[in-house]
Each structure stands twice: as C-alpha cells, then as structure tokens.
Design a protein around this nucleic acid. Structure first.
Lengths: 177, 177
DNA sequence: CCAACCATGTAAGCGGTTACATGATTGG
DNA sequence: CCAATCATGTAACCGCTTACATGGTTGG
C-alpha cells in the first residue's frame, strides 16, 4: 500500500494536522495519489499505532481537537525501505474508453457533449498546472528537490496536453456525418 | 461501477466464455480497464442473476464446465443507459511519483534503475500497440467502429510515447552530479 | 506421462467510497 | 446571528487483490 508512504513523504516535507495534510495532499501529491479525509485520518491512526509517527495537541488548537503529526525515525526508515522497491505500474482505468467502445459496438450514442465536458476539465487542470509552474519553478536556478517537483508537475502537464489533443481529434470523429 | 459495463460491451462485441472473456479483456478493453479472472467470474454471476446476460453450456464444452455468455435485451438497455452518464475522470495513481517525491525530500535514493525498468516496460507496450495498429488499422478505409477502436489505441500510444520522453528527461536529472 | 494450459470457482482481507455525525471557529 | 469552513471521527458497504482449490485437455 502506498497511501501510508505518500503521507509519510508529505509529513516529512512538513509536519501538520490531518486536516491540513488532506488539503495539501489535494494540491501536490494528490495529483498523483488521491485520498479522502477519511482515508487519511484512518491511515494516520494506523501509522501512529505502528510507531511511524507521533501526534501532539497542536499549539494553535485552542478548544478544537487539532493535532500535529510528525514522522518518527521508524517512519523515515520505512519510507526509505519502501522507496527503492519495484513500483507498480500506473493503472489506466478510464471509464470513457469503455463508453467509446460501447458506442462503437451499438452505434452513435451521442458521447460528444460528455467528451467536450472532459476536454474542458483537462483545459482547467492544464491551466492550473501551468500557473503552479510559473509560480514555483520559473527561477533558472532550482534545488534538486525543486527540479524533481518540477518534473512531477511536467508529467501532469504532458498528460493534460496529450489528453486535450487526443480529445480534439476524437471529437472530430464523433461529430462526423 | 464500470466493470459490468465493460464486460457487457465486450460480450456484445462477441459472446464468449468467462475464460475467453478474461483473455480478450487483457488485450483490448483491458488496456484501459484491467480485471482479474476472479472479478470477471463474479461479475458474470451477478449480471446473470440480474437478467442482463444468460449462459448455456458451450457447444465445445466437452466434459469441461465451459459456459457461453450472451447479452440479453435488459443488459443492452442497461449499457445504453449507462453510456451517456457523466464519466469519472481517470484516476492518476502513480506510485513512482510518490517515490520521486520521497527522493526529493530525503536525498538521492537511487531510483534510476527502477526508472529505467519502467521505461523499458513503456517501450514494450508501445511496440505492442504499434504492432496492433499496423495489423488492425493500416487500411485507409475503416468503419466507424474500427476508427473508434483506432482512436482508443492511439490514446495508449500517445500515453506511452509521452511517458518515455518524460522518463528520459527524468533519468537525466536522477543521474546528474 | 508430465507440464502447460484451459476453465471455473471459494475465501479472506484490505483499501476505497459514501453517508452521517459532532463541535469549534471565522467572516459577513 | 448564520453560513461556511475548520477539524476529526464512526460505520457500512463494496470492489479489488491474493492465495488456494479443482478437474479436464493438449502437446511434446
């Protein structure tokens, strides 16, 4: 399971509460590893039980239940151990391809509007990624860590560009006749 | 859930046994919707209980348990109903991006060999896709269904090309210094 | 004759999704 | 004051993965 290791990585980058972690996750590692807050809270509980992380009442908790989590040496050791294992391929589950194949088998089902909707989503994501790129990676001299983060972002940018170009061609085919 | 609909589509394309379905799946829809044989058998059972498909002992069963499945009108209706629903985005779960981010946080962990391994896998897949493209879609005049199948394959080809180009650049960064 | 493959299934366990719940704080 | 957001959790369900099991057929 990789969720725990994604959380460890994120907590090593910056100790934080479950809530903050969930929000940061959505905007960084989450682009490549989505998780809901329920998953995150449960996983934090497990990792604390395993001695990988520890928590304390947050300094700014006030009367809330806010807790800060930080990684312990066994957690870091586990991350190191895991990092060099062979990784599973990305799974390519795309419902829309199934729908297209149904359209091919049954005749024109009117998938064009849905394709346009998805294209717009890709455009949005691409714009967001490019904005992040401008903001965080414009400098000519970046640290090794920053350059790696940039490459991860670039993977997303390539994917979105690729998806948009493909969708444009696919749309042409669906609208034919 | 889309697995049942992927199976319905595949069965509409060609009635077959669970075993054949599982094998065909690996080489067509399976590129975008992987499923193990256990998932497939269970799903076939559910769909038969729901009246979407029916099965009969296969003509070439001999003394084996081989059964042929075919789609019934309610199954086709269900597929039509589902096909035009809004589709979920492809989830982008890529463990290797998490590992890279761990590498960025903890210092050089030696991920280059693993990246090279993955690059080779992408090359293999790309070669396979291009071979299928030559075999099935070389003709200048293709039916609508064939052209849709070709576009689905092209999506895979774009993805693999993209991944290889990205990996090459990433490898350069990991080997620096 | 034996290994590989055909063909189908059971069972356990885990991860992920969804719905629901609770209470505090902040901003208009 | 009320709505939105902060912050954390419980519970149920379902899909997916993995291991294991069973028996028939085919090819060298």
């Amino acid at each position: 399971m990789a969720l725990s290791h994604a959380l460890l990585t994120s907590l090593i980058e910056k100790s934080s509460s479950g809530y903050d972690l969930a929000r940061r996750f959505d905007k960084s590692i989450g682009f490549f590893w989505h998780a809901t807050h329920q998953q995150i809270y449960r996983e934090l509980g497990r990792m604390e039980a395993a001695g990988w992380i520890e928590s304390a009442i947050a300094p700014d908790a006030g009367k809330t239940r806010k807790r800060m989590y930080r990684v312990l040496p066994p957690g870091q050791a586990e991350l190191l151990r895991w990092a060099v294992e062979p990784s599973n391929d990305m799974d390519m589950r795309d419902e829309f391809m199934v729908r297209l194949r149904a359209d091919a088998a049954l005749g024109s089902l009117g998938l064009a509007p849905e394709l346009e909707r998805r294209m717009a989503l890709h455009e949005e994501k691409l714009a967001l990624y490019r904005q992040i790129e401008q903001r965080d990676f414009a400098s000519p001299e970046l640290s090794r860590a920053a350059r790696i983060h940039h490459m991860i972002l670039k993977k997303g940018i390539l994917y979105e560009e690729n998806s948009i170009a493909w969708a444009r061609e696919m749309l042409g085919l669906l609208l034919e006749k």
